[in-house]
Design a protein around this nucleic acid. Sequence first.
DNA 1: GTCTATATTGTGATAGAC
DNA 2: GTCTATCACAATATAGAC
Lengths: 211, 211
Amino acid sequence: MSNDRDGETEERILKAARTVFVRHGTAGARMQEIAEEAGVNQALLHYYFRSKDRLAQAVFRDVAGRMVPSIVAVFGSESSIEQKVEQFVHLYIDVVRQSPFIPGYIVAELHFNPERLTALAAEIAGTHPASVMQAFLPRLGAQIDEQVKIGAMRSIAPDQFLVNLVALCVFPFVARPVLRIVFGQDDAAFSRFLDERRRELPDFILNALRP
Amino acid sequence: MSNDRDGETEERILKAARTVFVRHGTAGARMQEIAEEAGVNQALLHYYFRSKDRLAQAVFRDVAGRMVPSIVAVFGSESSIEQKVEQFVHLYIDVVRQSPFIPGYIVAELHFNPERLTALAAEIAGTHPASVMQAFLPRLGAQIDEQVKIGAMRSIAPDQFLVNLVALCVFPFVARPVLRIVFGQDDAAFSRFLDERRRELPDFILNALRP
DNA sequence: GTCTATATTGTGATAGAC
DNA sequence: GTCTATCACAATATAGAC
């Protein structure tokens, strides 16, 4: 195996770790399996990442951070609420559909190792200007108030609104094993379910807010 | 320590296991910690449950199965859709609020050990009459169609409807670490958030389905 | 940087006394 | 049924050669 002049090996290890951690969770993952998946030996994992915990941190940072720029793009924009809802639903379903196990991994990691989120949040706060981070919730609130004032929308707290929006997008993926059993959905049926959802969810949400 | 004539010890072990598995997940849980939590030694865990895996299975069965009777009660009833939605939202939030880590545990277990759900499903199918299990989805569909025909509701597939309903109830609990950071919610704020949600969610959902 | 070999501790599980 | 003691192996981590 040749040298890692351009960080190619480190990247391959991280990718392998992503696969294994997402599949088995941080506690269930084995360094040995990651090494095999990356085509290197276990010692090299420690050479690059020092410990399993640091590697797990790097993976969470990588996986969870991946979602952030698009979210910021949607909610940091000047679009109308209607547009934001539709953009978010489409973006989320289109992206996550290609890695449908990510949400389950993230939720599990949030639950068992919530301290990793703190670390990630600090980093994101450093990357994006504070103005964007601080402002986007009140801004959304103001946008809602506007619509309420002209009678185009019923009032809703912006945090409730956001939780609703994200919940409706994320949940089908984390509940997939249940859908498989309760609705008898095989892969194709699940895919059709997502198509239908992508099409109808924006209207469902916007209609919920009509006066 | 006295003998376990009435299954008191076994019950105490199961309860301890519930606590530890819910907190750390199946892979992250340690038999030693469960033994301490139960006030017994590790050997006794094996005496009653033979292996960690069987204990994990028993815990999942216990925790996940706990929710089922109430769900069946709501959706197996003859109530109107409006009533079902309100009943489910109130029931779910009231119950889960007292054990707010359950949803995170269940989602994680579904993700990493989906085969446990299969076992549980078989058991539930055995307990409840097949008529109830098979019928409840078409029945909900028929109930929706009725409303659509009289112009009281817009059309929606029953599986989409159910996913929406459950998603909106479950998600705040699994996303709690995120709410804490993004919205700065401490325990009291989260509790108020749930109060507000319990009050407004039924209307949100029903309004979404108005024509 | 990458490997092999190994140290060290953790962890599920069992044997056997009481 | 419950305990103590211990086995057997899994798993993270490090030392040191190349």
